[in-house]
Amino acid sequence: MRTHRLGHSTTTVTELGFGGGPLGGLFDPLDDDTAAQTLEAAWDSGIRYFDTSPHYGIGHSERRIGELLRGRPRADFTLSTKVGRLLIPQDPRGRMDESFAVPATHRRVWDFSRDGVLRSVEDSLTRMGLDRIDVLYLHDAEQHFEAALREGYPALAELRAQGVVTAVGAGMYHPGKLARLVRETDADVVMLSGRYTLLDHTALDELLPACAARGVSVVAASVFNSGLLATDRPAEGARYDYGPATPELLERVNRIADVCAEHGVSVPQAAMAFPLLHPVVAGVVVGMRSQEEVLRNREAFSAPIPAGLWSDLCEAGLLDERAVVHAGP
């Protein structure tokens, strides 16, 4: 699988990365054996970039990814995790976590201070059983942006200067705030959630031009917009950005599917390929929760996409006219 370097760093990622959210029990519970089989399948498929976070299943995702990667040569993979939420142990008293289908053994405390960042990194390394992280992101800082920018980012830059990590940035869904971070810091990479996809092109307004100007890479996450683009024809109850999709969105996906079908392409194939056409996008990260999902996504990712698909989507008014629709050299 092809790899790309992140910004001005020495860190590389495979074009298809493994998103660790589902390993934390996103939407539905996931047992350890299924998680292990999923990760083994991802490794066997050639994926070498693994992304996780303390937030995902209050530590479950980090622990499970660490269990796989501890048995692999350290130079053979790239690992990213995130900071901004500290996990504080608590008695679950039979309660489930508010965000993931796991017992509420910890509570999250927002903390983008220097001490919070350093503690979060130490806790993550302990959970994963690894000696270093490659990429460190400020996570979900939309409502805490000034603290993340003024306190959190300098801590990340300090860890990079010390060689503790090799690339730093932020992972958010708000392209405007990510653009500000790109302009005001020396970040290497941003992870953009759901804002440069077949359905949402808002990253074209500020973020992607800012990244191009500053030499910052983008990792595109949530390229299926929480599942709406994960199948050819969305089923009733399909999610868009973690909530139910509107009738207008369902109709738009069906129009995209019609154009794709004319070129012998599935919607998931197009959804994974589209962001990578832009020169600042180094990779896409896809959340996977089973061996079958890994194999299906890997096959779809490898499918050739006729260039005419993109021009036809543009002509149908389904892609922003500013979108890059021609692959680079």
Rank of each mutant, 00 (worst) to 15 (best):
H8E: 04
L68G: 10
G176F: 04
P209E: 05
D186Q: 13
A327I: 01
A303E: 11
V189P: 06
L149S: 08
F145S: 00
V117D: 08
L118E: 15
D320I: 03
L125I: 14
L159C: 03
L156M: 02
Y137S: 03
K177I: 09
P209M: 08
G46N: 15
L313I: 12
V102G: 02
S217V: 09
Q269P: 02
K82Y: 08
S120W: 14
G25I: 02
A104V: 02
R107H: 10
Q291R: 15
E206D: 02
R252G: 04
R5L: 05
V253G: 08
P329I: 07
R114N: 00
A203N: 01
Y56D: 06
A210Q: 08
P244F: 04
L295Q: 13
Q143G: 00
A316T: 10
A230N: 01
G71E: 14
A179K: 07
V325W: 00
F18Y: 15
F27I: 03
P22W: 05
V102M: 03
G7S: 06
S226L: 03
I47Y: 14
H326Q: 10
I305K: 08
L208A: 04
P275I: 00
D115M: 02
V294S: 08
F224N: 04
S226N: 07
V168G: 06
V164R: 15
I47W: 15
R183W: 07
E146F: 02
A155G: 07
L309P: 01
P279K: 06
I65D: 04
V189H: 07
G7Y: 07
R74D: 14
D44L: 14
H144T: 10
A36K: 11
I47K: 13
A273C: 01
L149K: 12
D91E: 14
S113M: 04
L319P: 02
T197L: 04
H144F: 10
G163F: 07
L68I: 15
H4Y: 09
G84Q: 08
P103G: 06
T202G: 00
V219S: 02
G116Y: 00
I256F: 12
A101N: 00
V135F: 05
F145D: 03
R127S: 14
E40M: 06
L319I: 06
L138P: 11
D134N: 12
P103D: 07
A161C: 01
W110F: 11
D232L: 05
L204I: 00
R85D: 09
L30Q: 10
R108A: 08
L79F: 15
E293F: 09
L156S: 02
G308H: 03
T11M: 05
L208M: 11
G19I: 10
R239I: 00
I133N: 10
V216F: 01
A148H: 11
H8K: 12
Y49E: 13
Q90N: 05
L313T: 13
A221C: 02
V135E: 03
G17D: 09
E151I: 04
E299I: 00
L118R: 15
G20E: 11
D312C: 02
L229S: 03
A36E: 10
M172V: 07
E15S: 09
R72E: 13
P304H: 11
A148T: 13
L39D: 11
E40K: 13
L249H: 03
A213T: 09
R255S: 15
T34Q: 09
S99Y: 15
P329M: 06
E67S: 14
